[in-house]
């Protein structure tokens, strides 16, 4: 459990004593451990006292300050209403603890918060937190990175390593069988378009949601006979899972700013795909660019670009380049582009 130290500034004697004892009373209901220390970094400041206001002006950039007043001052991120009561105290301290754990350097204190700031519980999205952006963005990136090991891919890898035939399933949906002998998977026909329209399925959930059961090789053969379905190369299932489970989160160990290029086209005869993947393959095999540039030039959403990039990374198609290198492709007229659209439309009819 995290431990926080707190002190007070400019509180009158009564309030000060009251605060110290209340802190003890509420301790069991706090998500972190809080103790009173004179030299703490988190400070409750009485904003109705001149001394408190001056202290606020001087210290707001360096310390985490909680405004103590009848009305919430506009400049305060953290606020405890006067007089001190149990419930607001618990709420404030818990919200602050959550934000501090999110922001290890505790820089998020006292930047101006608009008067409209709704409530303590929404604090992580207030502008005050955003000012600590370098910390926030790395924290959220690592927290939000796509870790293939946490998806079906991790389970498949374990099955491959153990040379064990397996059955993977969520709820009552069609199972996926892995045959160790063939190094292939077996399931009903996979349609990326259908999957993309389904909120949760085997290929986009985290491992804990997947039931996996060792089975005999013969059970895989029996399943084909009984349920039909078709064999897929392991690569196709890994690819499909990466596309589905990434949800716009960059794969672990990669930086969004790094220019990348594809060594060659993914084998789209085997790997499930949608029309935008074809566009991305065309652009990314010819140009070295950051993913943001890829999104801009191909008019594909950044989330879809990231999903595709992750799948390509697992297929070992990605090449990192020192610098972006874009081909000058200005010669495609609007008339040509609309002709291409027309042909595509006719072909996909």
């Amino acid at each position: 459990m995290a431990h926080f130290k707190i002190t007070t500034k400019a509180l009158n004697k009564n309030d000060d004593v009251l605060f110290k004892s209340m802190l003890q009373i509420v301790n069991a209901q706090l998500t972190a451990e809080w103790s009173f220390h004179d030299d703490a970094e988190i400070i409750l400041v009485d904003m109705e006292e001149r001394e408190g206001q001056q202290f606020w002006q001087q210290q707001q950039a360096q310390r985490v300050l909680i405004a103590y007043a009848r009305e919430k001052p506009a400049e305060a991120t953290w606020f405890l209403p006067r007089p001190i009561r149990v419930k607001p105290l618990i709420q404030t301290l818990n919200a602050l603890a959550a934000a501090q754990q999110f922001l290890p350097t505790a820089a998020a204190s006292s930047t101006t918060t608009p008067a409209t700031t709704p409530s303590i519980s929404s604090i992580p999205s207030t502008p005050a937190i955003k000012t600590a952006s370098p910390v926030v963005s790395t924290a959220s990136l690592s927290q939000d990175a796509f870790d293939p090991e946490q998806s079906l891919i991790g389970l498949l890898k374990q099955a491959v390593a153990k040379q064990q035939a397996m059955c993977f399933q969520i709820a009552a949906a069609t199972p996926l069988f892995f045959s160790a002998k063939r190094q292939q998977c077996l399931t009903a026909q996979l349609q990326l378009n259908t999957l993309a329209a389904t909120p949760t399925h085997l290929y986009n959930v985290s491992q804990e949601q997947i039931q996996c059961e060792p089975i005999a090789e013969t059970a895989v053969i029996k399943a084909i006979a009984e349920q039909g379905g078709q064999f897929y190369p392991l690569a196709a299932i890994i690819w499909l899972t990466a596309l589905s489970a990434s949800k716009g989160r960059l794969i672990v160990g990669h930086l969004l700013q790094q220019p990348v290029k594809l060594k060659h086209w993914p084998n789209l005869a085997v790997l499930p795909h949608q029309p935008h993947h074809i566009r991305l393959a065309a652009f990314m095999t010819r140009n070295s660019a950051t993913l943001a540039t890829v999104a801009e030039k191909t008019q594909v959403s950044i989330a879809q670009v990231v999903d595709f990039f992750n799948a390509c990374q697992l297929e070992q198609l990605v090449e990192h380049t020192e610098q972006a290198a874009l081909l000058n492709k200005n010669n495609v007229s609007d008339a040509k582009r609309s002709l291409f659209r027309g042909i595509l439309k006719r072909l996909l009819q």
Binding site: I278, R279, A281, A282, K329, V332, K336, R337
Partner: peptide, 9 residues
């Protein structure tokens, strides 16, 4: 499709 994508992108 791949050819058209190459022509455009």
């Amino acid at each position: 499709q791949a050819l058209l994508a190459m022509l455009e992108f």
